[in-house]
């Protein structure tokens, strides 16, 4: 019975994505299109975090590093080596994934707070290295705090919308896949009881690493697309810890380790920041702080998580 609900949700989701694809033809202003694009972007980014941390329970406090690497790869490939956008984009995803592979092997052995701190430290170290590299070695590569200006594109906002939408779709669809696959059961088993998972035959190291690398690959793509969209990047922007915080909070609000959690959480929070954030700039962060505290205290499983428990749904 639950499996049927599950099918219905998938069909609804596909229809919804299809409908979203027509948004550029429906919006009245560039501003509206921009808001929708940002929502779709954040659904994807939050989804990347959920894919790893939501399902395995390994709290990654440095996912922004792969977003930043993606941004820098695309910027350097396009400006220094004149590679066109789409090949650079693909390269961004691959390099992010490769770095995640190298970093994941030692860090995924750590548990709990240690993993969280190690990932955080790695992200901050990368930010400092991109900031200081040129000055220290007297070269011009990352261009430190001056940042890099990408080639200005002639593309409309709708071009970026259509770049982001498929990637976000893939991220959410990956969640759906995780919910229904052998791989997903491995991740959930790791989250619930890692040592029991291991003695039940789950190759914990490999499965964690796959989730981590996948999440990094998608983050790299998002970083690259956003860099090209905004056309100007600095280490402080693309490696901003605030981005990590957003991913975590969006996922948590929606529900960690659920298929629709990041979708709901990211949409909700992005819309709030576009409306409240614009009207009450001074109080915005105080309110976000309060929302976080209240959310943790009254609904620790998030919106979707809570619904799932109450309605006894399995896969949403």
């Amino acid at each position: 019975m639950n499996y049927r609900i599950d099918r219905i949700i998938l069909i609804l989701f596909l229809m919804f994505t299809g409908a979203v694809a027509f948004v550029p033809y429906l919006v009245q202003s560039e501003y509206q299109l921009r808001v929708v694009t940002v929502v779709v972007l954040w659904v994807g980014i939050a989804g990347c975090w959920n894919m790893m941390s939501g399902y395995t329970g390994y709290i990654d406090f440095g996912p922004v590093v792969y977003f930043g690497i993606g941004s820098y790869v695309v910027a350097i490939a396009m400006t220094k080596y004149s590679v066109p956008f789409f090949p650079s984009l693909f390269l961004s995803g691959c390099i992010s994934a490769f770095v995640a592979f190298l970093v994941g092997i030692p860090t995924l052995r750590l548990r709990g707070a240690y993993f969280a701190i190690a990932t955080f430290a790695f992200a901050e170290a990368m930010k400092q290295i991109t900031l200081e590299f040129d000055r220290t070695f007297n070269v011009s590569f990352f261009q430190g705090s001056d940042g890099i200006t990408l080639p200005i594109s002639n593309y409309e906002n709708s071009f970026f919308f259509y770049c982001i939408l498929p990637v976000t779709f893939l991220v959410v669809f990956t969640h759906y896949f995780i919910e229904h696959s052998k791989f997903g059961y491995a991740l959930k088993a790791i989250k619930e009881a890692e040592s029991a998972a291991e003695i039940s035959g789950v190759n914990t190291t490999a499965n964690k690493l796959v989730a981590y690398v996948m999440s990094a690959f998608f983050l790299g793509l998002f970083g690259a697309i956003e860099a090209y969209w905004i056309t100007y990047i600095t280490p402080s922007d693309v490696f901003n810890v605030q981005k990590t915080v957003q991913m975590v909070i969006m996922t948590l609000l929606g529900g960690m380790g659920t298929f629709l959690g990041p979708v709901v959480g990211a949409t909700f929070l992005t819309l709030i920041s576009e409306t409240l954030g614009a009207q009450f700039v001074e109080y915005y962060l105080i309110m976000i702080g309060a929302i976080i505290i209240v959310a943790i205290l009254i609904m620790p499983s998030g919106i979707i998580g809570g619904l799932k428990i109450r309605k006894k749904l399995r896969f949403i």
């Binding site: 052998k182 059961y185 491995a186 959930k188 088993a189 989250k191 619930e192 009881a193 040592s195 029991a196 998972a197 003695i199 039940s200 035959g201 789950v202 190759n203």
Partner: peptide, 23 residues
Amino acid sequence: SQIMEPFTGMTVFENVLVGALHG
């Protein structure tokens, strides 16, 4: 295990399924 460690967020069926899938 002497200390029981079920995957508490999963059903009994899914717990056993993990063993069959991976082990």
